[in-house]
Nucleic acid binder design. Structure first.
Lengths: 205, 205
DNA sequence: AACTATAATTGAACATCGTTCAAAAAAGCC
DNA sequence: GGCTTTTTTGAACGATGTTCAATTATAGTT
């Protein structure tokens, strides 16, 4: 057919993103198809390919929005300056987000960006912003000049927590009697902090 | 066409598994399709559905084999009874396995078994067997009657390590300057052990 | 106002996927 | 040899992501 002046490029982009989000949240990741998004916004599949190179890019932008939502949720908690309290608070909010938007979270971490193409900078920046909250909580434990070590520990903690949430989500933690992921994650935080305080040289660098 | 007496049911099963393994290892997970497996063993796609309910089941059995391979690799290392040494040794062998069979490892952890249907018992037992190696390494740190806590810590450690390997595999750990996953995982083990020793009550239960 | 050039939109088409199932044929049995 | 049983097939179905010639509304020009 032809050009329609119903919406601008940006409007269609936003509509597509909103539709993708709604589809994932309500019907799960598998329901997110080029055709389903196109149908939801009243355009044809081909139109999407004027705005996105492919479905991967739609998911990438969706995950970007999810990271923003997550950050917004995590940043409201007051920073009290006590690592254990701050981290457990972060953990609580993180798990709450995970419960509120399980499907969005799944796409965020399960979706594999093709290895050959590099992630765009703006995406890594959104990740770094969330990571920064963990770093801030850990700051009191490190001398000022140890930013590198601080960043490393933050990433270790982040990855470790992700592992617990990920395996719990897949139902793989309940091999033989299970404890809630919440408890395990809390234990992990406490253990790591205890380890940090007890043996500061455990992370040499 | 018709029945061929070329192979028994079991033989076809084994051939299919071997083919699936070869395909995943050489061409990656995406190349594992019903048609590719069928073609590799010289049968038609339909034949596979006499042996497996669906592709999920093929992947499940493939993962079972991978767990066996992993266990065989991890179990050969001598158990010396010093948790840090034993765990770091396990970690080393685990990472070596991961480097040798990256695609098999990806399928093992990325593949989502449908949530509605329960995993078969034999599969969980294979997982528990690997987990048992971590438990054994941790044993000296816990009094005899604390098996539950031992099991919990082992699962925490396992999940945390998985998180690091998983994010590293996806290239998501290198947000801002990166360290090798190997180093981060080693740090995690040391930190957790230090935390365990320093604060045994950190995991109340 | 008419005409042209530009750009957006379409939807059929292609190759692929998992899965099904009526038909076909080989093996076992009497 | 004929009959039954069981295995195997491959075409068929409904999906998927992606492409692209064709179509048509808009913008610009005369």
């Amino acid at each position: 057919m032809a050009r329609r002046s119903d919406h601008t490029r940006e409007q269609i982009f936003d509509m597509a993103m909103a539709a993708a989000e709604r589809i994932v949240e309500t019907e799960g990741y598998r329901a997110l198809t080029a055709r389903s998004v196109a149908h939801a916004i009243g355009y044809s599949p081909g139109t999407l390919y004027n705005l996105f190179a492919n479905l991967d890019e739609i998911v990438l932008h969706l995950n970007g929005r999810t990271l923003d939502r997550l950050y917004d949720r995590l940043v409201v908690a007051p920073y009290v300056g006590r690592p254990e309290a701050d981290l457990l608070r972060l953990l609580d909010d993180y798990l709450a987000f995970l419960e509120d938007h399980p499907h969005l979270w799944q796409v965020l971490f399960d979706y594999k960006w093709p290895k050959d193409r590099p992630r765009p900078l703006w995406y890594d920046q959104k990740v770094a912003r969330v990571l920064g909250l963990i770093e801030r909580s850990l700051t009191p434990l490190f001398p000022r000049q140890d930013e590198h070590r601080l960043a490393d520990v933050a990433r270790i903690l982040w990855a470790a927590l992700h592992g617990i949430c990920s395996l719990a989500d897949m139902g793989r933690l309940d091999v033989v009697s299970a404890r809630p992921a919440r408890d395990m994650a809390g234990d992990l935080v406490r253990l790591l902090l205890a380890g940090l305080v007890a043996e500061p040289a455990a992370v040499p660098r």
